[in-house]
Amino acid sequence: MTRGYTPRAAVTAEADAAGRTRLTRLRSDGPLAVRATADAVYLVGAAASPLGGDDAALDLAVGPGARLAIRSAATALALPGPAPSRTTVRATVGAGGRLDYAPEPTVAARGCHHHAKALVDLAEGASLRWVDELILGRHAEPPGRHTSRFDVTYAGRPLLRHELVLDDPAVYGSTAVLADARAVGSVLLAGPDLATDPFTAEGLSVLPLVGPGVLITATAPDSAALRRRLADAETYARGLPETISHHT
C-alpha cells in the first residue's frame, strides 16, 4: 500500500512579561508548512490538499494571555487516494488566551475519503473562535466521503461535541440533515459576552450552548452564501443584533 505523508506541525504562542504574544514554536514538517505574518499564522502548501493516505497533525498551544490567529492561504481540497486521509488539529488555550482559527473552506472532492478531527481544550477564562466551512464537491460534482469531529472542553467539562458525517447521501441529503445544501459550516465562539438567546434565519441557526459558548451553524447553496450567513450570525452572536444585515 502506498504510504501518504504523515507531517506533524506545531505552533505555540506565549505572552511575554509585557503581555505581548511571542511565537515560541513554529514547526513546519514537510508538506505541512506554517508561516508567520504580522496578523496570523498561515497554513500553506500541501497541507491545504489532503490526499488519500495522508495523515497530517497540527498542534496549537496558546498560553495564558496570549493570542493566536490561524489562517490558510487557499481552499483545502480533499482528494481521493489509496487510503482514507486524515487531519487532526489539537489545541489548548490558557486562561485569558485567545485562539482564532479560521482557515479557508475545505472542498470534499468526488471520491475523497477524509476524516477531519479537532480537539480543543479551553482553560477557564480562555476564548475561542473556530470556523469550519465544508463545500460538497467541486462545481457540479457529488462529494466524496467526509467526516468531521469537533470536541471542545471548557474548564474540563464538555462544551461541544459535534460531528458531521457525509457518508451516505440518503442520510446527509435528508431533509432533516443538509437537504440540498452544497455548503455547510459552523462557527464556535467561546468566552464571555456572547448572545444568550437563539436566533434563526434562512439556513442559519445561532445556538447558545450550556457552557460559555455559542454555536453557529449554516447551510447554503454555495460557499459565498455560506460565508455571508456565518458572518451575519457572528455579528448577532457577539451581541449586536441591531447590526444583522438582511441579505441572508
Partner: peptide, 11 residues
Amino acid sequence: LPAASAPVLDL
C-alpha cells in the same frame, strides 16, 4: 460517543 449533527433539525 457519537455526536452526529443535523443542522436542519437544529434549525
